[in-house]
Structures are given as structure tokens and as C-alpha cells.
């Protein structure tokens, strides 16, 4: 078994499986994430949100999942790097003229780029929120994540970085969602249109809801 699985993971298809798997894992994480974030819309000065976020920060099960989450992100990025490097190597001499637009979408061809933008966003993002929370938890201090949110998003530059990050996310998901299913071998006349529309609406909703928070906080619509 171990022999098989290691050769599986070394194969191009195996690597893609891992990408898809971690990708879908991240997709489901984003659902939870967006739900917790949406708690700010109770407009109770972050009370509900802080409870939810606090739960996320302290609960032991969540901590275990968090490790998985980070492992997933790292794995996803790692595989992405290997694959992008290998794929680039597969065509050492580029075309003088290329007319790719007729046969595929720009974002499906730019997953590496979009992913890299996402990575940059994530670094900024974790520095903004996750690290302060961790420091607080480590020091045993009480940490008001909601206040932190408000402070962070009062900065227009950060706001723009977030919005750009979300645009990258949108396009990454737009291709990534259905791509993962194709990778898993799910493609037929019956289900594929369904997967495609779920993927589309998922991408739209996740991005819009995420985007609404920094905007509303920046504009001070939520206190």
C-alpha cells in the first residue's frame, strides 16, 4: 500500500488529486470562516462575533483542525509550486504567437498567478489577525478580535489589498471549484452543469460576503 500510495502521489494525476483535495478542504473552510465573520452583522459591537472567534481560537477540536488547515494550505501551495514548475518545464520554447483566448479562460490559465496573489494576501491577512490573536492567547490575554478588525480596516490601503485579494480568490475559485471535481473524475452530462453553477454561485457569494465586511467596517456602518 505505501509503495502504491507514494508512487500515486508522485504521479501527475496523484499530485492533482492532492491539489483538488486540499483545495476543496479550503473551500469548506471558507464556508465556516465566512459564517463566523458574518456574525459582525448582528451589529452588537462584535459580541457574537467575538464569542465565535474566541471559540475558534480556544476550542481544542478547532485547534486540531487548524493544524490540518495549515497543513492543507502548505500542501496546496507546495504542490502548486511543483506542478507549476513542471508544467512550465514541459514547454521550454514558447510560441511566438498564441491565441489561447478562444479555447480557455484567462483565469483557468492563471491559477498559479492567482494563487500567488492569494498567498500574499494570506500573509498580510494572518499578520493582521491570526498572529495578534495567537500572541494574545499565548500571553493569556483577553483579545478583542472585533476591535482589531475595526482598526485594521480603517486603513484604506489594507482595504484595497483585501479587495484585490478577494478578486484573486474569486477567479481562483471560479476555476478551482469545478476543476477539483474534474480532477476527482466527476464529469458527465448530468452532474457537470450542476457542479458548474454551484461553483459559480459559491464563488460569487463567498467573495461578496467577504468583501462586504471590510467595506462596511471601513465605512463605519457597523459599530
Amino acid at each position: 500500500m505505501s509503495n502504491t500510495s507514494s508512487s500515486f502521489l508522485k504521479s501527475s494525476i496523484g499530485k492533482k488529486f492532492l491539489m483538488g483535495f486540499t483545495g476543496l478542504f479550503l473551500i469548506s473552510f471558507l464556508v465556516i470562516h465566512v459564517c463566523i465573520n458574518a456574525c459582525i452583522y448582528f451589529n452588537d459591537s462584535g459580541a457574537t462575533f467575538n464569542v465565535a472567534a474566541g471559540f475558534m481560537a480556544h476550542n481544542i477540536i478547532i485547534r486540531v483542525i487548524e493544524i490540518g488547515l495549515f497543513a492543507g494550505i502548505v500542501l496546496h501551495i507546495f504542490q502548486a509550486l511543483i506542478l507549476s514548475w513542471q508544467n512550465n518545464k514541459a514547454r521550454p520554447q514558447k510560441y511566438a504567437v498564441q491565441n489561447s483566448a478562444v479555447s480557455s479562460t484567462w483565469y483557468s490559465r492563471s491559477m498559479g498567478l492567482l494563487g500567488t496573489l492569494l498567498l500574499m494576501f494570506l500573509i498580510v491577512h494572518l499578520a493582521n489577525f491570526w498572529i495578534p490573536t495567537k500572541i494574545a492567547v499565548f500571553n493569556g490575554e483577553d483579545h478583542n478580535t472585533f476591535e482589531n478588525l475595526k482598526t485594521v480596516f480603517s486603513n484604506p490601503i489594507i482595504l484595497i489589498v483585501y479587495l484585490l485579494g478577494l478578486v484573486s480568490l474569486f477567479y481562483h475559485l471560479l476555476h478551482g471549484f469545478q476543476s477539483a471535481f474534474q480532477t476527482f473524475g466527476l464529469n458527465n452530462k448530468k452532474y457537470t452543469p450542476c457542479i458548474q453553477s454551484v461553483g459559480f454561485w459559491y464563488s460569487v457569494f463567498i467573495t461578496l460576503i467577504f468583501a462586504s465586511m471590510p467595506i462596511t467596517l471601513f465605512l463605519g456602518l457597523i459599530k
Partner: peptide
């Protein structure tokens, strides 16, 4: 053989 992997862009099917 050194072919790349598929990132499901779908261009091959079109061409």
C-alpha cells in the same frame, strides 16, 4: 516523457 499535468483548462477539447 515529460508532458505537463492537466489543470483542467479545457483548451485541448476545443482544439
Amino acid at each position: 516523457e515529460g508532458f505537463g499535468s492537466c489543470t483542467n483548462t479545457g483548451a485541448c477539447e476545443v482544439e
